[in-house]
């Protein structure tokens, strides 16, 4: 492979980047007002919560697992926040740490069940998904609107950046999570252990890596990210509702896979997930700019993209196998 300047493991990321640029260029040519920094920034504003969950999901998928509970945990977070603040009158300074702790411990619990009882992550997190979604409706069947001044401030504050554009506070949170996750994945023992588990869990164990602890931490981290995404989502929607973020787990998985992470684990980059989220966002933007298309077209395009990326990965990995033989 030395003849090529591009390393094989970077191909999916390069493909995602190229696609992102291509779509942005196409949109800019086709629609007036598309070619602006603010359009890109809006991608971030509208998808901050998705980016945060997807980052957590990236670790889960890198380790060879899956977390289906993320959408429900977001819904539960919005619901619990809204109920505690609006109905119980608790201050946000208590509520936010509480919901974050709750999401984290729920994730850790699922991770522990997955590891110590050797149950497939799919089933455990599916149970978690139903549990969290059901709990929302125990709190209330209806949506609860949030009028708390702190939440309203967080929702409406525009952080100006040079050039007359702006982002939201949620974007800052999301980017901070992204940066921390990149550090975590590539420069800490925890991160490398995640990759090792995704490569071969048994080997990781034999190499003396703390497999059990790492797996629990992975799901705890994903739970934390979901809860944080839930908080950000609450800022975005200013309401708590049991039907919020319905099916979001699948959008999240799609974003991670389009970002070049292998579903079988062990291969991928956190930054790729960022690109995956941006791609989903830009497709949505294009379709809303088009005006005549229904928003379901987003799903269709995402579906096609997902398929293409999985085929690309298959192609790359099978070529690798042939070379080994």
């Amino acid at each position: 492979m030395a003849r090529f300047a591009i390393k094989k493991q970077h191909v999916p990321i390069i493909a995602s980047t190229a696609l992102l640029i291509l779509i942005f260029a196409a949109g800019s040519l086709r629609y007036t007002g598309f070619f602006s920094l603010q359009v890109l920034l809006n991608l971030l504003i509208d998808n901050a919560f998705l980016l945060i969950v997807a980052v957590g999901m990236t670790f889960v998928i890198l380790s060879g697992g899956i977390d289906l509970s993320v959408g429900s945990v977001i819904a539960l977070t919005t619901m619990l926040s809204a109920a505690l603040i609006e109905q119980a009158g608790w201050p946000p300074a208590v509520v936010i740490p509480l919901v974050l702790a709750l999401g984290t411990s729920m994730g850790a619990g699922m991770g522990a069940i997955i590891h110590y009882y050797r149950i497939q992550p799919f089933i455990v997190t599916l149970a978690g998904m139903f549990l969290a979604r059901g709990l929302c409706f125990v709190i209330s069947i209806n949506a609860i609107t949030i009028k708390d001044p702190f939440y309203v401030t967080m929702a409406q504050t525009r952080v100006p950046i040079p050039g007359g554009n702006f982002i939201s506070i949620s974007v800052i949170i999301a980017l901070a999570v992204l940066a921390a996750a990149i550090w975590l994945a590539h420069f800490t023992r925890f991160g490398r252990c995640v990759y090792a588990i995704g490569g071969n869990e048994y080997s990781a164990l034999l190499m003396g890596l703390p497999v059990g602890r790492t797996k629990v931490l992975i799901y705890a981290f994903s739970g934390f990210c979901s809860a944080l995404a839930g908080v950000v989502f609450t800022f975005y929607m200013l309401s708590g509702y049991g039907l919020h973020a319905l099916g979001l787990e699948l959008d999240t998985i799609a974003a991670v896979v389009i970002g070049g992470t292998l579903l079988t684990g062990g291969v991928g980059y956190v930054f790729g997930t960022f690109l995956g989220v941006m791609l989903q966002g830009i497709i949505q933007t294009i379709i809303s700019f088009e005006g005549t298309l229904s928003s379901w077209w987003t799903k269709i395009v995402i579906g096609v993209l997902l398929l293409l990326f999985i085929l690309l990965q298959r192609l790359l990995s099978s070529r690798g196998e042939v070379r080994e033989a």
């Binding site: 023992r189 995704g198 190499m207």
Partner: peptide, 25 residues
């Protein structure tokens, strides 16, 4: 071979004992 094929050769040799500075590999 009980190693991780997805990690680099260097990581496979040194994982768990990576040289670090302030927790950074």
């Amino acid at each position: 071979v009980n190693l991780c094929p997805n990690l680099s050769v260097a990581e496979n040799i040194l994982i768990g004992r990576e040289p670090r500075r302030f927790g950074r590999i």
